[in-house]
């Protein structure tokens, strides 16, 4: 009986977490614009999504920014994690502190602080500023993911490489990086997801000529609930689901 109660509690909370998304997905296939009752299965809302050129442009913007920012963040974050882990240098604590600040900063504070920076620098708000911002908020996630893998490392492998005459770069390229690959890929995937989903920071750092998907969804929802949004949300959820599953399976390999 006790075990049953426990299971029931778990099931209840999982239902709370998943039921609203499940309802959203079901309605995205419902052949009715306003009615809640089931009017039959349709792909119609997905078709109307695929014919909405404006929306496709915005989705492409998001994908391009996500691909580029994830790649930049992965390069900088991986190098950074290796540097912070391997080397002792003055200012190391400052860098660790800044990464901690980036992780803990409320998104809205990061959004306005980057807006202030870009305006001061005279950068036009749009693609560049969104890319720089997304790279910035993704870096700490890459650093943390890579760092946790590094700390599980056999230090003797690095020492052995260097005893055999490998330079720092060769050690990085031939020994450290291959061992880090799962964490690096997971970090990239998670950065990609973060970039695709970000609302708050993009809200502040983008200009009128460059729209990204979450902001488009935001303005669509403000205008009212429509079945197309159900379909679009379903697509976004499915994308996240696939990426997270791949990232998780990569991270689990180390055990």
């Amino acid at each position: 009986m006790k075990g049953l109660g426990r299971g029931a509690y778990l099931a209840l909370v999982y239902a709370f977490l998943y039921l609203p998304i499940a309802v959203l997905i079901v309605y995205s296939f419902n052949d009715a614009r306003y009615s809640l009752s089931w009017q039959g299965f349709t792909w119609g809302w997905y078709e109307s999504l695929s014919q909405n050129d404006d929306l496709i442009d915005v989705a492409l913007n998001s994908v391009i920014v996500a691909l580029l920012s994830a790649t930049l963040a992965t390069i900088i974050g991986t190098l950074g994690a290796v540097a912070l882990y391997r080397y002792r240098f003055s200012g190391r604590n400052v860098l660790n502190g800044l990464i901690f600040v980036l992780i803990m900063s409320p998104e809205i504070v990061m959004g306005i602080s980057l807006l202030l920076l870009f305006v001061t620098m005279g950068l036009e708000l749009g693609f560049t500023t969104v890319l720089l911002s997304h790279t910035t908020f993704s870096i700490p996630f890459v650093v943390v993911t890579v760092m946790s893998r590094l700390s599980g490392f056999d230090k003797f492998l690095i020492e052995a490489a260097q005893d055999l005459g490998a330079t720092e770069f060769q050690t990085f390229r031939k020994v450290i990086l291959p061992l880090l690959i799962p964490a690096v890929v997971a970090g990239w995937l998670l950065s990609f997801t973060l970039s695709m989903d970000d609302v708050i920071i993009s809200f502040f750092v983008t200009g009128p000529d460059f729209e990204v998907l979450p902001l488009k969804v935001y303005s669509m929802v403000r205008l009212g609930v429509k079945p197309e949004i159900n379909a679009l949300s379903t697509v976004m959820f499915a994308l996240t689901l696939v990426i997270v599953l791949i990232a998780q399976s990569l991270l689990k390999e180390r055990k």
């Binding site: 974050g77 190098l79 950074g80 290796v82 912070l84 860098l95 602080s113 920076l117 910035t136 720092e168």
Partner: peptide
């Protein structure tokens, strides 16, 4: 040497990025 170069690039990249996009903006606020 290649030794110092890699170390400098690795530290330099993350340091410049964080100072420019994490430290400076917060100071500006």
């Amino acid at each position: 040497s290649d030794h110092a170069l890699f170390k400098r690039v690795a530290i330099g990249t993350i340091a410049v990025w964080l100072l420019l996009f994490a430290f400076a903006p917060n100071l500006m606020v």
